[in-house]
């Protein structure tokens, strides 16, 4: 869907993107992650043709990015905004027409979206008369009204109350099921972790990591498990198939231990070893969060600036 090849973007005095390459497959939910200032917004602006890269190329559905692709992309910037004094219905139609929709088509689609999100009564209201959450909903509708193939959402959930965030999340997933490719960008990595198929991590204008979420997590598993058991405190003599990393007493004769498996040992081995000795409440693999992976990755390979 989107192929970003060796993008370099420099602003006077600093590098926003230093040779970044990415592949976003069609139908994916792709997460563009990284701390503030990593270059996410710069990259998104290039994809939206708001700015042009100093060097490198972007391909959209196999073609070199050009003006005709604008109508196939929907973009919700991090800094949201609409004309405050303009009526919401009229404004949504205007924005959709700028994306190439006819007035009739835009009106038709908008009506069905307003029905779906229970916004019908807002049609003639001015934006400034709406609550923040309502404005966000309107902004979301404006982003997707022209049924883009690629939806780019910069920090999509910031500013939404939990109910609306859930609602929007469901709508995004449904659009994805219908075939739209979604590109998220966020610095709150945990917020989109469970949504994304693939991610790319940006830090200090460089890509530090990318790939399928599953693969990345697998590669960062380190055979660590949490075990909670009930009974008297166990003592380990070295014959167990794991190393004890941490031990806590929870009271009521329950204990939690954090263990790291020995080479070639499996979770089954752990269970086999423990079952005769105590009663097990829970055994859970400790999977690193994206945040932890990021911190690890950035610390391992500090990037010279």
């Amino acid at each position: 869907m989107l192929s970003i090849r060796h993008i370099v973007k420099q602003y006077a005095g600093h590098t926003a993107l230093g040779d970044v390459s990415l592949e976003v497959e069609s139908g994916q939910i792709f997460g563009l992650l990284g701390p503030n200032g990593a270059g996410k917004t710069s990259l998104i602006r290039i994809i939206n043709q708001i700015t042009a890269p100093d060097s490198g190329e972007v391909y959209f559905a196999g073609e070199k990015l050009n003006q005709s692709h604008i109508e196939r992309i929907g973009y919700m910037p991090e800094e949201r905004g609409l004309y405050k004094k303009m009526e919401i219905g009229e404004q949504m139609i205007y924005l959709a027409r700028l994306k190439g929709l006819s007035r009739d088509e835009a009106t038709k689609r908008l009506k069905s979206w307003f029905e779906k999100l229970e916004m019908q009564s807002w049609w003639n209201k001015k934006i400034e008369e709406l609550s923040k959450g309502m404005q966000q909903k309107a902004q979301f509708v404006a982003t997707i009204l022209h049924e883009p193939d690629l939806i780019i959402l910069d920090e999509p959930f910031s500013g939404f109350d939990p109910v609306n965030a859930e609602l929007i999340k469901d709508e995004i997933l449904e659009l994805n099921r219908k075939g739209a490719t979604i590109l998220f960008s966020t610095h709150r990595m945990e917020s989109v972790e469970e949504l994304c198929d693939s991610i790319a991590l940006l830090n200090k204008s460089k890509k530090v990591l990318d790939g399928k979420v599953k693969d990345i997590k697998n590669s960062y598993r380190n055979e660590t498990y949490l075990v909670e058991y009930n009974g008297s405190k166990l003592n380990f003599d070295g014959s167990q198939p794991f190393n004890l990393v941490d031990e806590t007493e929870n009271g009521d004769e329950t204990y939690t231990i954090k263990i790291k498996l020995n080479t070639a040992a499996s979770a089954n081995d752990v269970l086999q070893y423990l079952i005769p000795k105590t009663s097990i409440n829970r055994l859970q693999e400790v999977v690193p969060t994206m945040n932890e992976i990021f911190i690890k990755k950035v610390n391992l390979k500090p990037i010279a600036s």
């Binding site: 973009y75 910037p77 949201r80 905004g81 700028l98």
Partner: peptide, 10 residues
């Protein structure tokens, strides 16, 4: 009002 970024993506 920050709408400018939406407009200039079109």
């Amino acid at each position: 009002s920050r709408i400018v970024e939406v407009i200039i993506s079109s």
